[in-house]
């Protein structure tokens, strides 16, 4: 029985069929992978562009970047500090989730955008102190509403920059290219 099947598969039509099946499997696989990499929608369509446009500094809402490992998401009290004085907050459909969250006292479930895997220990402070600007990694926030990553944060990209930063300084390179600098 298997012999008949193989014989059929060997003829041109069979090969096409096999090709179609394989193609389908691989497209489904690719789509599946694509799906796993998709983040779900943000609870609030937060317009970074608008806020930066008002001249608000990144560090006003994300002060952790200058002090410690994580930049942090501002507390709802901080959002509300400005927004309760803005008339539009009461009416805008976009801002309804914020109003609702503050009034009901439930935290907003933000979807993280810029993130590194669990096995990477990233420290914002060192990068800010080394003179990196926020947009060097996170892109130009005047151009986007919801934050997007301009590049994938993979190790090659990190190391490229680390090597550049070290320049000809061997000791610095040892430190910046050391596995133990990020992985522990």
């Amino acid at each position: 029985m298997f012999k008949r099947l193989f014989d059929w598969l060997r003829q041109p039509l069979g090969l096409i069929a096999v090709g179609i099946v394989l193609l389908t499997v691989f497209s489904l696989a690719a789509y599946g992978i694509f799906l796993t990499q998709q983040s779900s929608a943000q609870p609030i369509q937060f317009p970074h562009r608008t806020h930066v446009g008002f001249g608000i500094q990144c560090l006003y809402c994300h002060p952790g970047a200058a002090r410690g490992p994580s930049a942090g998401i501002p507390s709802q009290a901080k959002c509300w500090g400005c927004h309760q004085q803005i008339a539009k907050t009461q009416t805008s459909a976009l801002l309804a989730p914020l109003k609702q969250a503050v009034e009901s006292g439930t935290p907003i479930q933000w979807v993280p955008v810029a993130m590194v895997p669990d096995f990477v220990q990233f420290n914002h402070r060192a990068h800010v102190a080394a003179g990196q600007n926020c947009e060097d990694c996170h892109g130009d926030m005047t151009l986007v509403t919801i934050a997007e990553n301009p590049q994938v944060f993979n190790m090659g990209w990190c190391l490229d920059c680390h090597r550049k930063a070290a320049g000809e300084d061997e000791a610095k390179l040892l430190k910046l290219a050391d596995c133990g600098t990020c992985h522990y």
Partner: peptide
């Protein structure tokens, strides 16, 4: 999901 402080 990341939950911010209500009041830090």
């Amino acid at each position: 999901r990341r939950e911010p402080y209500m009041q830090m």
